[in-house]
C-alpha cells in the first residue's frame, strides 16, 4: 500500500529534503524549461508534462573538463578533476516517465560495458522522485513503449485531487517518507491513482496508436528497411544541425579535445557532445564511412531501434518526442517509425 501527501505540503517536503540533499526540480531559465539545481523552492514550476531539456545534462553535461595537465621538470603533471565532482547526495524531483526510462538506457552506455567514472559519480547518489503527467505534449509517444510510469524509481507521485498518491519504489525512497508530510493512502486513493494514469494514457494512445512492445518483431522489421527510399527522402530534408541528438535523453556521443595554451605546455582535456548527423562524425584517417546525409539520418534511427536492441536488448528511445519537437526540418521520429513498421 502506498502513501499520500497533501498538495499544499509538497513545498515544505521539498524544503525539508533540501536540508540534507542537493535538490533538482523543473524550472524555467531564459524561456527554456529544464531540471536545475534549486536554491529557492519557489522557483520550481508546475508543468503538466516533461521539461524541454531532459535530465541528461545533470549527469552528462554538454562540456565537461576531465583534467588539467602541465609539462613540468621533464614530465607531465596531471590534476584530475574527478575528486572535485563531490559525493553530495542529490534528489531529482518532478521527473517524467520517459526521462526516467531514458536515464536507465543511458546507464547501460555509461556504466555497463564501459564505465565512465565522471558519470558514475553524479549518477550513483541521485534519488529520483518522478511524477505522472497530467496530459501529453504534442510530440509525446511514451505509450508506444509501455506507458508513462517507469519500472524503476525511488518515489512516484500521481495527482489524485487534493493529494498526490505516492508509490514507493526503493529502500532509498522509503527512507524519505516522513510522517510529518505523508499519511497512509486508502484503497480508494489507489483506485483513483490507477484510474488517473489510465485516463491520461488512453488520451496519449488515442493519438499515438503505435505499439512497439514486441521488441524482437519490430527491431527486425526496421532492420529490414535499410535500403528503403525513405532515407533518401529524409536525407534531402535534414540540415544536419544535430539538434535531435543533443536534445535526446539517451544520445551519448562525445568528442574529446585538448585545449592548450599557445605553446602546448599546459592545458585541459575536455569532452564535448557530438552528433552522428555531423559530416565529420564518421570521418577517419582512411575514409568517411557515413558521408552521405541519408546514411546519417538512417544511422540515428537505427541507433535507437536496432543497434541497442542487438547490444542491450532495449530500444534507446523512450518516446519523449523531443527530437521531433526541435527538428527544423519537421522530421518526426514517431511518424518515421510508423512508416518503417507498416
Amino acid at each position: 500500500m502506498g502513501v499520500k501527501i497533501a498538495k499544499n505540503r509538497v513545498n515544505e517536503f521539498l524544503k525539508y529534503l533540501k536540508e540534507e540533499y542537493i535538490l533538482y526540480a523543473p524550472v524555467e531559465e531564459n524561456g527554456v524549461s529544464k531540471i536545475s539545481k534549486i536554491e529557492d523552492t519557489s522557483d520550481i514550476i508546475n508543468l503538466p508534462y516533461r521539461t524541454q531539456i531532459s535530465l541528461k545534462p545533470i549527469f552528462f553535461p554538454p562540456e565537461q573538463k576531465f583534467f588539467r595537465f602541465e609539462k613540468k621538470n621533464g614530465g607531465v603533471e596531471i590534476e584530475d578533476y574527478l575528486p572535485q565532482e563531490g559525493d553530495d547526495k542529490s534528489i531529482i524531483f518532478g521527473v517524467r516517465g520517459c526521462d526516467v526510462n531514458a536515464i536507465e538506457v543511458l546507464d547501460k552506455y555509461m556504466l555497463d560495458e564501459f564505465e565512465d567514472p565522471y558519470y558514475r559519480k553524479r549518477r550513483e547518489n541521485a534519488i529520483i522522485i518522478g511524477i505522472s503527467c497530467d496530459y501529453p505534449k504534442e510530440s509525446c509517444f511514451c505509450t508506444a513503449f509501455g506507458g508513462m510510469v517507469p519500472e524503476r524509481y525511488d518515489l512516484w507521485f500521481t495527482d489524485i485531487g487534493p493529494h498526490f498518491y505516492v508509490d514507493i519504489g526503493s529502500k532509498r525512497g522509503e527512507k524519505l517518507i516522513d510522517d510529518k508530510f505523508f499519511e497512509e493512502a486508502s484503497e480508494e486513493d489507489e483506485m483513483r491513482k490507477i484510474r488517473r494514469i489510465n485516463s491520461v494514457e488512453t488520451k496519449i494512445n488515442r493519438k499515438v496508436k503505435t505499439n512497439l512492445h514486441d521488441i524482437k518483431k519490430y527491431y527486425h522489421k526496421i532492420k529490414n528497411r535499410a535500403d528503403d527510399s525513405i532515407w533518401e527522402e529524409l536525407g534531402r530534408k535534414c540540415v544536419s544541425c544535430g539538434k535531435c541528438n543533443f536534445i535526446c535523453p539517451t544520445c551519448h556521443c562525445f568528442d574529446v579535445k585538448d585545449m592548450t595554451n599557445i605553446d602546448g605546455s599546459a592545458g585541459e582535456r575536455i569532452r564535448v557532445w557530438d552528433s552522428c548527423h555531423l559530416y565529420d562524425y564518421a570521418k577517419t584517417s582512411a575514409e568517411n564511412f557515413r558521408e552521405e546525409r541519408k546514411a546519417r539520418v538512417r544511422y540515428r534511427i537505427y541507433d535507437k531501434f536496432v543497434f541497442p536492441v542487438m547490444r542491450y536488448g532495449v530500444y534507446a528511445c523512450t518516446g519523449c518526442g523531443r527530437c521531433s519537437e526541435v527538428c527544423p526540418a519537421g522530421i518526426d521520429i514517431h511518424a518515421v517509425v510508423r512508416r518503417l513498421i507498416k
Binding site: 554538454p62 562540456e63 540540415v239 544536419s240 544541425c241 544535430g242 539538434k243 543533443f246 536534445i247 564535448v272 557532445w273 552528433s275 555531423l278 559530416y279 565529420d280 526541435v326
Partner: peptide, 9 residues
C-alpha cells in the same frame, strides 16, 4: 558543422 551545433550545446 553549423552554428546550430554550438547554439544547441
Amino acid at each position: 558543422y553549423s552554428v546550430c551545433v554550438e547554439c544547441s550545446l
